[in-house]
């Protein structure tokens, strides 16, 4: 009986933590449908007026476009450079492997604010203006460690015998990679790309240093709008962001599980 009550307390505590964590997020979504003039309680009626208003705001649409392009390019570039590195770390032995691996994961442990400052000062020293390219290279550095971790983890799980079999049958290392490793690695590559897309799409701490009025992402735009006060429009924009960046990975997880079941793997 005593054990049972202890366990119930643990359960209740966990539920309370969930409530605490999600109430603010739910509030953003709820208030975005509030028909009232101000972005606050009480809720007076459901309406889509703030979403309509959003869709008519050219600068927000512009920021959305920037974010989408930036996120897509970031995910492609990051994954393209992370795959060969992951292959090298998992499949080959060389001097200084541990140290180099730690170096590539270092961006995780460097405060983002310092990352933002560093790249900005560097660009300034090179006498380059802030530009879209700065955002792109910044986001590649920002997301590289995460993609590397995801791809490496999966690669460790792919048995080497498949690759060895292909090579015994006369495939070159490159052929082996494309015909054997790549298809097996595809789910991790996909996950890595999604991961870097959402990180890029959501990032604000470092991005605020790199963005310009012409190259705003959605979070930077939200930051600018916040200066006045929290409007229902911000809640609506937040709700759109939440929907987008949450549903993407969930859908991807669902699809990849369907695939896994379909192929019997």
């Amino acid at each position: 009986m005593k054990r049972l009550s202890g366990w119930s307390l643990i359960k209740i505590y966990t539920v309370l933590i969930y409530v605490w964590m999600f109430t603010p997020i739910v509030a953003v979504v709820l208030l975005s449908f509030n028909s009232q003039q101000f972005g606050s309680f009480p809720m007076e009626g459901l309406s889509f007026r703030w979403y309509v208003k959003l869709s008519q705001n050219a600068s927000i649409l512009d920021a959305f476009k920037n974010s989408l392009v930036l996120g897509s390019l970031t995910s492609i570039m990051t994954t393209a450079i992370a795959i060969p590195a992951a292959m090298a770390f998992v499949r080959y032995d060389f001097i200084g492997k541990e140290a180099l691996n730690t170096l590539l994961l270092a961006p995780i442990m460097i405060p983002e604010v310092v990352l933002g400052v560093a790249l900005l000062i560097f660009i300034r020293w090179l006498q380059q203006p802030k530009s879209f390219a700065l955002l792109l290279i910044g986001h590649v550095v920002l997301t590289l460690p995460y993609v590397l971790l995801v791809v490496q983890a999966r690669l460790v799980g792919i048995k080497r015998v498949y690759e060895e079999a292909a090579q015994t049958l006369g495939a070159s290392p490159l052929q082996t990679f494309w015909a054997v490793t790549f298809p097996l690695l595809a789910p991790a590559i996909f996950a890595g790309m999604l991961f870097s897309f959402t990180i890029s799409f959501d990032d604000v701490t470092a991005t605020l240093f790199w963005a310009t009025a012409q190259n705003q992402t959605v979070p930077v735009k939200i930051f600018g709008m916040l200066r006045d006060s929290i409007s229902p429009e911000i809640n609506a924009l937040g709700a759109v962001m939440i929907f987008l960046t949450v549903s993407l990975p969930l859908a991807a997880g669902y699809i990849s599980r369907r695939f896994a079941r379909g192929s019997g793997a």
Partner: peptide, 26 residues
């Protein structure tokens, strides 16, 4: 669910507290 917040922009999670703690918050 516990990992969901990772997918939500930091700025939204931060400002969402205004809706809870603000003068006309929850």
């Amino acid at each position: 669910l516990i990992m969901l917040p990772f997918w939500i922009s930091f700025i939204i999670r931060t400002l969402s507290w205004i809706n809870i703690l603000g003068d006309s918050g929850l």
